[in-house]
Design a protein around this nucleic acid. Sequence first.
DNA 1: ACGTCTTATGTCAGCGCTGTCAAGTCAGCG
DNA 2: CGCTGACTTGACAGCGCTGACATAAGACGT
Lengths: 343, 343
Amino acid sequence: MQSDHSQRPTLADVARKAGVSGKSVSRVVNGEAYVSAELKAKVDAAIAELGYVPDLAARSLAGARSFTISLLLDTNGQDYVIQLLEGAYEACKLNSYHLRIENLDATASNESLLERLDEVMRHSRLDGFILAPPFSDNTAIMDWLEERQVRFTRVAPCIERERSPCVFVDDAAAAGEIAQYLVSKGHRRIGLVNGSPRHGAAIARRTGFLDKIAEIAPDAELVEATGNFRFEDGIDAGKALLGAGNPPTAIFAANDRSAAGVMNACAQLGISVPDDVSLCGFDDSWLAKLVWPYLTTVRQPVSDLGREAARLLIEKDTGEGAPKQIMLGHSLIERDSVRSLDQ
Amino acid sequence: MQSDHSQRPTLADVARKAGVSGKSVSRVVNGEAYVSAELKAKVDAAIAELGYVPDLAARSLAGARSFTISLLLDTNGQDYVIQLLEGAYEACKLNSYHLRIENLDATASNESLLERLDEVMRHSRLDGFILAPPFSDNTAIMDWLEERQVRFTRVAPCIERERSPCVFVDDAAAAGEIAQYLVSKGHRRIGLVNGSPRHGAAIARRTGFLDKIAEIAPDAELVEATGNFRFEDGIDAGKALLGAGNPPTAIFAANDRSAAGVMNACAQLGISVPDDVSLCGFDDSWLAKLVWPYLTTVRQPVSDLGREAARLLIEKDTGEGAPKQIMLGHSLIERDSVRSLDQ
DNA sequence: ACGTCTTATGTCAGCGCTGTCAAGTCAGCG
DNA sequence: CGCTGACTTGACAGCGCTGACATAAGACGT
């Protein structure tokens, strides 16, 4: 019944076909040193012919590595989660790794987070962790991991970037570009909807925005509103900013979600975007095209962030002198929510 | 260096502590038959004391099962993906299973889908698949899987439900409830924004809605618009429905996303929701609370669907006479996008 | 010519578990 | 009272791979 039990060729099959020892095949597969080009060629040929794929279970049982990494994130209300996942998965697939998702509640106490982590660790062998925001800035988790000598990489950390391999975008520069863009469109009275003070990224975006404005248009008026990255915050901020006298001609919201909120406030107030007020978001999440007009925003290469973070973790062995901190580029996505005042 | 190499207790440790053979521990862990209560008690005590957790890698290497299942879905534009994932993950975690995500492009040809599946199968041992929409209605995939005797369960299938274990909600009944609700609010001129004809669910929703209207308010006027579940479709449909003379007083869109599109069309047309037109969506996805006013919609217990689908797959052994087709309840979520005409 | 180091390949045990088979125990039964 | 068959437990090989170690063949220095 189970005799057909997966015809998958084994390492031994490859060895037989190539006329070498099993260990040699293993060496080739793992890219170990001291393998002659000739032997490698023979083995590679046999592998290709048989369509051999190493068995993960056997590898992790026999060796020190588990070929499994874990992604720590909070799916709650985060629009980039899927893209992050996609990127990380891709990198894992490419390297024959498993990816485990660990969905934690970012608002939970550090103790309960660590407890959960402990549970995770004792339930499966893990080669390392990817820390997604806001865990990428959680020093308690980093301490805990380091203490246990567990490797980890971080996505979009804002603090202690040299503490681990990490990938990020330059939030401040990106926000600065938005500032530059709005100023170039003639805006001089600008509203700013801030993000959660718990996210370092929110602070970087604010600072980058403000600094750039001060640099290129010191005469500009700025009005800030507090926020927390949520849709409702955007609504409130939008009402606060636009309901008062002398409203700004443009608003920059720290993420797309709160920008969508601002847009809704506009709809409620009978204000037209972009005719009456221009609007910029941040993230280029799927939300940016679920509002009308489509949102001008900054694209973060989120799936690339996920992919690179996974790659950094996986390639610890191979990756040698490569820089451990990777900054990825962002780009301003011009859509329809900003209008020029110069005409 | 690697001497501390995970203190995880092994089956042998448990056996020693309990004074029984390793095989007996294995029997208890796997809930096999022919184990005396006495032995089970001893073993359970030892397991608890040691905090023993079976090693997945060793289990799958030694046994026939891999303790890994795969979830086939298309993340593209689907708002329920994360919830589905969460549910499936939870069930897996609970049973010490691994979950692999396979993200396929639903618009690809069946050949390329099957090719991809083949690749997936030869790269990892898999105990089975969960087919999410629209793959849950793909007979080519089902044929292929059955041919290879690979087990699978389906989420929200619309055709051949008895063909495999599956979980679903009664789309037709849910749409009928929306119909009833709108009629009870006094609406008699109603618009319908249809979903993708490729999704069986879209057809069920339409039929359920129409049938119920015919039953309880045969005098009602219905206007249909084609759609494809997308935001843009909602915009187009909304404009078509509301731009013409004698517009409907209420609109039912086949999913939240296109409902959001309708809402945008309203904003563009200067039509107020719900004052000028009432609006219902379907899914209760995140989007329902990312529009203003919040969307009245039908909640599908998506994460439960995921969880149950995984459970059905995992418990094939244990689950005996249990029904293989599970229908989960839906519920109408009344928010702010519908108004009563009776006052 | 001989030891020594580097390179290249092979042998073999064993990771932690389960499948198979064997070996017991004990009830019921002719 | 011995025998069948349903239970209950254990011994042991081996899943597919890698780590540790052994071995062998040049390269090099003295």
